[in-house]
Simulated assay, not measured.
Amino acid sequence: MSERIVVVGAALLDGDRLLAARRSAPPELAGRWELPGGKVEPGETPEDALARELHEELGIEAEPLTRVPGEWPLRSPYVLQVWTARLHPGSPQPKPLQDHDELRWLTPAEIWTVNWLDQDILAVREVAAMVGGEGAGAKPRPL
């Protein structure tokens, strides 16, 4: 049995707004939305990996805050863990630098207006419940 590999996702918050990132690669994921992040490298903590990935993908300095309850299976051996995070004071605004072509700050009422990647839906539902508003009880948009 292979050891699991943790992929970290950021529920990057600005007040009650959540940052969503639209994938540009690989082709089978292009056009769908996700919580930005990536794989934890050997010797790295999930929090350090999250800060590194956000810098590489979005050009920002961010602080991981709290782990969102739950862990979601991805393609084996990967699992998704999500942390809330916020921009460091003085950090530039996020820009799509790597693997994304668009970013959106979504209010609770807008959370389900984008076509989330299937594997992110349960995590986004947890985050929506944390920030409250219409997003918490709304259903994901059908494909």
Score class of each variant (00 low, 15 high):
114 V>G: 05
12 L>C: 13
82 V>S: 06
117 L>P: 05
53 E>Q: 06
51 A>K: 09
71 E>D: 13
94 P>D: 03
28 E>V: 07
97 L>N: 11
65 L>S: 13
27 P>Q: 05
94 P>H: 12
141 R>H: 05
111 I>E: 00
132 G>V: 01
141 R>S: 12
27 P>R: 05
4 R>A: 14
63 E>P: 06
58 L>W: 00
39 K>M: 12
126 E>P: 11
133 G>L: 10
11 A>G: 13
13 L>A: 11
12 L>Q: 13
94 P>A: 08
97 L>H: 08
35 L>S: 12
120 D>A: 02
94 P>R: 14
98 Q>V: 07
37 G>E: 03
78 Y>W: 14
43 G>S: 13
55 H>F: 07
107 T>K: 07
89 P>V: 04
37 G>Y: 00
143 L>F: 04
127 V>Y: 05
84 T>G: 07
92 P>M: 08
116 W>T: 04
118 D>C: 06
108 P>A: 02
55 H>C: 13
73 P>Y: 04
135 G>T: 04
92 P>Q: 09
20 A>L: 02
17 R>Q: 11
86 R>H: 06
129 A>D: 09
131 V>Y: 07
133 G>S: 09
1 M>G: 14
117 L>E: 01
48 D>G: 10
44 E>Y: 06
102 E>M: 09
25 A>M: 01
49 A>Y: 07
51 A>I: 06
99 D>C: 15
118 D>V: 14
109 A>H: 01
18 L>Q: 12
94 P>L: 11
6 V>I: 14
47 E>T: 14
13 L>R: 10
3 E>D: 15
100 H>Q: 03
95 K>D: 15
60 I>W: 00
73 P>I: 04
64 P>Q: 07
26 P>V: 05
16 D>I: 04
69 P>R: 08
62 A>L: 00
117 L>F: 07
129 A>N: 04
36 P>C: 06
139 K>N: 07
40 V>A: 12
91 S>A: 12
104 R>K: 06
103 L>Y: 01
34 E>M: 12
126 E>K: 15
67 R>K: 13
142 P>I: 00
57 E>R: 14
86 R>K: 15
103 L>P: 07
6 V>D: 11
11 A>L: 10
103 L>H: 10
94 P>K: 13
78 Y>N: 15
114 V>E: 01
71 E>P: 11
104 R>Q: 05
104 R>P: 00
61 E>D: 12
83 W>P: 09
78 Y>R: 15
53 E>G: 05
43 G>Q: 08
11 A>T: 03
33 W>R: 03
102 E>D: 13
72 W>A: 10
82 V>F: 08
24 S>P: 00
143 L>A: 08
